[in-house]
Design a binder for these strands. Structure first.
Lengths: 160, 160
DNA sequence: AAATTTAGGTATGAGTTATAACTGTTTTAA
DNA sequence: TTAAAACAGTTATAACTCATACCTAAATTT
């Protein structure tokens, strides 16, 4: 008696088989964060990357584009349009570097500084929202673990 | 005396101003994981999504496409090409559901099962590699935190 | 029986990331 | 002191992911 192929086995299907993998959970969590942070930054005319660039330039005035690309782990060609966006919005300037006529020294404008401060408050609120239910210690450990994973990934790829 | 604008302030520029935000750290960590897991799965002809789909179908035989899309948080249109890929590779089948002529019941083939088991071992090795330096307890907490964030994001968006 | 909903699919557009190659400038070396 | 190499920024482009609108066939509702 050939048993017919079962069509519906699980009464309540689930993805628990994947939940043990870090990558799967992180992909889903990151997707949520990305949605939320972009919605948070939209009123400021910013995206996650442009916000990141703005903060780093603000805290490292005079930075070169290549340095910024290196810090943010972004390819230089992609950074160009990001800076175009920020420059056009009047949030930062590309000043020619006096000692190297190839390079630009990046500076945040007063307008950029003000917007960045406001956006930062909004992002911090977003952080708090997304981390609801986690203790401060758990949050610290989360960030430590994420940095550890990033570092492990770097070590694995191209020891340079 | 008008002071000239400083061009290089930080001797060693950094992105510490962003490191306090969960999203920034997660983006970078996830990027590393994605690189590594895709490199890990490439020899099997799989990507992160196709692997995920394969595992979930394997553990929930007879699943409908819409159920799979729901479980993986993927839009139905995007799932189509993923299943095309897996079906063409002979790893799973789309069997017409006897009780509903619109629907397909998904099943993993013997070939798919074998490949999936092997790929899983490779992915587990990848997990271990990426989590090096974290204790089991820390890893558990990381996953718990990620699921918490995912859930917080879901609650925030579309209460449905 | 007509209207609505559902399952799967097609087509398409937006957004992100990566690569190759180019211009102009600086540095290194012959 | 030129010639070669390296570097800063840019352009163009391709691959991949994700989302939306719309279509068909079949089921369900009214």
């Amino acid at each position: 008696m050939p048993t017919p192929r079962p069509q519906l086995v699980q009464p309540d299907p689930d993805d628990e088989g994947l939940r043990g993998h870090v990558g799967y959970n992180m992909k889903r969590a990151f997707h949520m964060i990305q949605m939320d942070v972009n919605a948070t930054l939209a009123p400021f005319g910013l995206r996650m990357v442009t916000f990141s660039a703005l903060v780093v330039v603000m805290e490292n005035p005079g930075l070169r584009q290549s340095q910024l690309a290196e810090l943010l782990a972004i390819e230089r060609p992609n950074l160009v349009v990001i800076l175009d966006e920020l420059e056009q919005a009047g949030l930062l300037t590309r000043d020619r570097a006096p000692d190297d006529r190839r390079a630009y020294a990046l500076h945040v404008t007063a307008k950029g500084l003000a917007l960045c401060e406001e956006a930062r408050i909004a992002v911090s609120a977003h952080d708090k929202r997304m981390a609801e239910g986690l203790t401060d210690a758990e949050l610290d450990m989360l960030i430590t673990a994420l940095r550890r994973i990033e570092r492990n990934g770097k070590l694995g790829r191209s020891p340079k």
